[in-house]
Computed example of a mutant assay.
Amino acid sequence: MHRSFLPPRPLPSHSGHRFSRLGWPEGIHRLAAAPLLALVVGCAQAPLEPARPTPWLAQLQSLLPADVLLIGEHHDAPAHQVLEHEAVQWLAGRGQLAALVMEMADSGRATDGLSREASEAQVQQALGWNASAWPWAQYGPVAMAAVRAGVPVRGGNLPRADLRAAMQDERWDRHLDAAALARQQAALREGHCGLLPEAQIPGMARMQIARDARMAAVAAAARRPWQVVVLVAGGGHVLRGVGVPTHWFPGLTAKVALARAEGAAEPLAGDADAVHDTPALPAGDPCAPLRAPQGARP
Rank of each mutant, 00 (worst) to 15 (best):
L188P: 08
D212S: 08
A133T: 09
P47L: 03
L64M: 12
A296H: 10
I71R: 00
A180S: 10
V238E: 05
I71E: 03
V101H: 04
R214T: 13
P202S: 03
R223E: 11
H75N: 02
L69W: 02
A274G: 13
A213V: 02
V40Q: 11
Q227Y: 07
H29Y: 01
H74V: 13
G140F: 08
A178M: 10
G235H: 06
H74G: 10
V242F: 03
R240V: 01
D112G: 06
A33L: 12
E84F: 07
Q81W: 13
L39I: 10
R224T: 01
E26D: 14
A165G: 12
D277R: 10
H29W: 05
A87G: 04
A187I: 10
G236W: 00
A222E: 14
F249W: 08
S119M: 10
Q227M: 11
D162T: 04
L114E: 13
P289Q: 06
V142K: 08
S107R: 14
G270E: 14
K255Q: 15
H74W: 13
R183M: 09
V244E: 08
A118S: 14
Q122D: 15
Q96C: 02
A77E: 07
P267V: 12
T246R: 15
H192R: 06
Q227V: 12
G128W: 13
R206E: 00
R154F: 01
P202M: 03
G270L: 14
R148I: 02
V68P: 07
P53I: 00
A92H: 09
A92Y: 13
M1I: 13
A143G: 12
P282V: 10
H175I: 07
E190K: 14
G27L: 12
G113I: 08
A121Q: 13
Q81K: 11
P8R: 10
L196F: 08
A180Q: 15
Q61W: 10
R164Q: 14
G236I: 00
D212H: 04
S15Y: 09
V88Q: 07
L268I: 08
A58H: 03
P12T: 06
W248D: 15
G27M: 13
A205R: 07
Q89P: 12
V41S: 11
N130M: 02
V230L: 14
R21I: 15
P298H: 09
V68F: 01
A126C: 11
P202V: 06
V238K: 03
A257K: 02
A131D: 14
L60N: 05
L252C: 07
L57Q: 05
A296Q: 14
D67I: 10
A166F: 05
A178C: 02
G16H: 12
G234W: 01
V256W: 01
L83P: 00
R297V: 15
A283T: 14
V41T: 12
R224F: 05
